[in-house]
Design a binder for these strands. Sequence first.
DNA 1: AAACCGGTCAACCGCGGCCGT
DNA 2: TACGGCCGCGGTTGACCGGTT
Length: 272
Amino acid sequence: MGRQPCCDKVGLKKGPWTSEEDKKLINFILTNGHCCWRAVPKLAGLLRCGKSCRLRWTNYLRPDLKRGLLSESEEQIVIDLHAKLGNRWSKIAANLPGRTDNEIKNHWNTHIKKKLKKMGIDPQTHKPLDSCDGGGQRGEEQMAEVGAGAETASKKFPRSTGEVDEEWKSQSFCTDEVPVILPEEMMVPPASTVTSISPSSPSSSSINSAKVEENQLACINWSESIPWWILDESEGWDLLWDHSEGGLAVEDPFSDYGSSVLDQDSWSFSLQ
DNA sequence: AAACCGGTCAACCGCGGCCGT
DNA sequence: TACGGCCGCGGTTGACCGGTT
């Protein structure tokens, strides 16, 4: 069965996302959630296909993403799960909260593969490489090391295997379970992480000092970036500390969908 | 200083599966 | 059951960056 392209590509933008596009997408999803990805770019005013938007969101903009290299224990979990699941990156990612399948796949290809080969282990089969070079036995020893490492990691990080506990399940999700974030469900970090904002001192000058370089926007943690996105007046985003509403009103210049209010008690957005 | 090279990773491509009609 | 649309997954590409010559 032939498959039609996901979208009419004529006139659609490709390649790296700009910070403005990021903002539009983030703001749209914060405000509206995503109904179906195909509709998102149109509604958000983006010249992208829905697929591109979904990828950008799931791999880069999602608020719960961890940034930076995988830790030792995370690496061991990846190795352990890869031995069981193969290249099922999304399944592996499901056991590593805050990590995406793409990230894990890249890390596997660029770091772990080499590491395993160095250790005399075939990264695909997880068995010792050809024993002709005498490395077989060593490879097995190393396999044991890897296994032990994985076991250790499992103990430290009991979500690495099939014995994923319920509590963990409730906290983690697969990239294909990226929640449809309704505005009222949208949570931002507790006030302790948003030190630049204070209801009693909504000074825009101190706020502006927290501004980061535009291109760093996507590289910083959500917890750091939330206040900036809200506060970046140079881009036309307005922050209003609304005492009567008990929250922050976020005006969106890019959207026709009105503004959101950030509740200071629950740190959740709600539509106005 | 410039050219080259290799590593990294965001983004794209295309297929397969699922679901509704 | 067949068909068509949508989404997610895994593989691949290519731009960018830092190190080396």
